[in-house]
Design a protein around this nucleic acid. Structure first.
Lengths: 213, 213
DNA sequence: TCGTCTATCCGACCAAGGTCCAATGGTGCG
DNA sequence: CGCACCATTGGACCTTGGTCGGATAGACGA
């Protein structure tokens, strides 16, 4: 495996720092950067990649939804999630969603190198002190989100952003009736009855939203 | 001014990156790092400092409260707030709390250098594209939330919890038509069109929300 | 090859959401 | 008192949301 490494983060400074850490852990690799999830998709499509370092908090990454969508498109590409958060439940959900590693941004530089090397070797890396038992809590919640099809995820994200069914239908080039059909299916999978409850469920399942404080 | 520069951030990788950016903007300075607000206090007390780069999200920084406390202890020391957030209301509050600059972590490296240089020259720096009027817009949104009558707040809370109009009417012993009337009034005050958007507005405007983790 | 399953798609139908208009009742002010 | 203002209430009416049933097409295994 000598494919390229894609670094997706919307903080230029941190991206550059991560790049040098990856370069140290995997000398000679082709390392490319992306400032959004869609850009990361492009970089991965351009050439065979062997690792994606993904920030969950980018504008279009939609938290875990974006991660899961990516995993479904590229099941063979290991993804190392990089996040400012380090709560056990968040870590657990990221791993359950198919991440090969969860690297909190508070991780020491040495440990980051170690993590990158481990993932490139095909291992799964979690922060030191992470309790595997914490996985249980996150898993069941993630299974529900994981059972959603890619199309359903797209719909759910737009519903969470407050769009009307009509707007969603227009954006996705499908009928409004189809949007509704997807929604009823989503409701069943998430065990909710209304779109408002679905939004709340998506909020708690996905990573935190941009907050005012 | 040739005092030291203190960098307070709990992300080692980002801290190191910020250090090199500061070194480029202010060559020859004594640059020291701190991983907490209390450590930053110590570094500042050790030697005459001319700049503090402060992350709002550290364990003991207590958000704006920590910033304001620091400003009271060292009124002459300019503080450049570094934060992952970049919402206008957050920027506005940081400046109002006495920050000499607000640097979102998504800022380009060149702009970060520029900001550091500006603050060292005694200027105030805000992100490019930051509209001082936007600050008013954010605060007006707060006032809108505060302008809701007690009854309307009750309704909004129940809507945010995913209840149907019918359920809300039953709980409050009023007609469903009345609930709807309150809602249209709430929508106008919050400048939204649907209940899901009202939920989103309530989430971002309200400071606290019971967190599951 | 033939069923079977599932994702995606849609129209018809009914329930819930949302707007407009109007009435009631309390509060403050000249 | 007379008046204006506003929160609260709710009925009539239209829009949006949600369910049900069914159609199509690709994937997978016997």
């Amino acid at each position: 495996m000598t494919g390229r490494v894609v670094i997706a983060d919307d903080h230029p400074l941190f991206r550059a720092a991560l790049r040098s850490a990856v370069a140290a852990a995997a000398p000679g690799r082709d390392i490319v950067e992306a400032d959004s999830l869609s850009a990361a998709r492009d970089r991965v499509a351009e050439a065979a990649a062997s690792l994606l370092c993904l920030d969950l908090h980018m504008k279009d990454s939609d938290g875990f939804a974006g991660l899961m969508g990516f995993r479904q498109e590229h099941p063979a590409l290991p993804v190392a999630v990089v996040s400012g958060s380090e709560e056990p439940s968040t870590v657990a959900r990221a791993i359950a969603a198919g991440a090969a590693a969860f690297i909190p941004k508070s991780t020491a530089i040495d440990a980051i190198r170690e993590a990158v090397a481990a993932v490139l070797d095909g291992d799964v890396w979690t922060p030191p002190g992470f309790d595997p038992d914490a996985m249980k809590a996150g898993e069941e919640a993630m299974e529900r989100l994981a059972s959603l099809t890619p199309t359903q995820l797209k719909v759910l994200v737009r519903v969470r952003d407050g769009l009307l069914n009509k707007q969603i239908a227009f954006e996705m080039n499908i009928s409004e009736a189809t949007v509704k059909a997807h929604l009823t299916s989503i409701f069943r999978k998430l065990s909710v009855q209304t779109r408002t409850q679905a939004v709340l469920a998506a909020e708690t399942l996905a990573v935190e939203r941009p907050s005012a404080s």
